[in-house]
Amino acid sequence: MTASIERAPAVPAPEAQADIDREMAELKRAAAGKPALLHPARDYAPYRSSALRYPKNPLVVVRDPEAVELSGPVFGVTDTTELDSDLTRQHQGEPLGERITVAGRVLDRQGRPVRGQLVEIWQANASGRYAHLRDQHPAPLDPNFTGVGRCLTDDEGRYQFTTIKPGAYPWRNHLNAWRPAHIHFSLFGTAFTQRLVTQMYFPNDPLFAFDPIYQSITDDKARERLIATYNHDLSSPEWSLGYRWDIVLDGPSATWMEEGR
């Protein structure tokens, strides 16, 4: 018995929330004196999984992206079905949880609508569990909820999903780490350079302050752009609560280049 214990690999004690909090506060202070970053720094250490996955060499600035980079994949009616945007109707029964409508517009940095482009979402169920084999959080799976949706933006750049509010869930960044409730979004613009994958959060989540993924955006204003707004006009009587979230895609596009910077 003793021998096997001695041979067991040393497992470092998990770090405490207080350690992560201290690091996050330091990085926020350090960022305060500099121009605000619009995106998270890839080397944001409190998110421990980033340690070996960020480039150490500076990115090479391409001031004149080529025609292919200023164009991008196109999607059409064959790429989605009508049911894809209603995550509550993909199974025999109704999923458990608080039914919500999430709607908004996809725009470029000039405020112009991104039309006919693919929006994809995925999320945990109301208990905070993903329908993914590797998610071992001991919360119940919901046989009536997969948590995957997609739609195309309309001519005004609008998208809309019906789903349920996802639950918060634990992860192993540090001891007692919990992710605030969020919906993952994947977005395409007219240019490949505008590609975006991000997460939408819900207002007033008590877990915001503790989450190194959310806090990786060190500028307050930038970070708050990820929070949807409760919108009573979007709520349906006796049916669902409405959240509005507009998305602005970064990066140059062909029209942006034509107009000159």
């Binding site: 000039q110 405020g111 994809e120 590797r134 993952h184 994947s186 994958v197 990820l226 895609l249």
Partner: peptide
């Protein structure tokens, strides 16, 4: 110019959604 929506990681659980 309108400020862009910041990026967030794709996370570990996109496997049943995006591919």
């Amino acid at each position: 110019m309108t400020a862009p929506t910041p990026s967030q990681t794709v996370g570990p659980f996109y496997g049943y959604a995006l591919p």
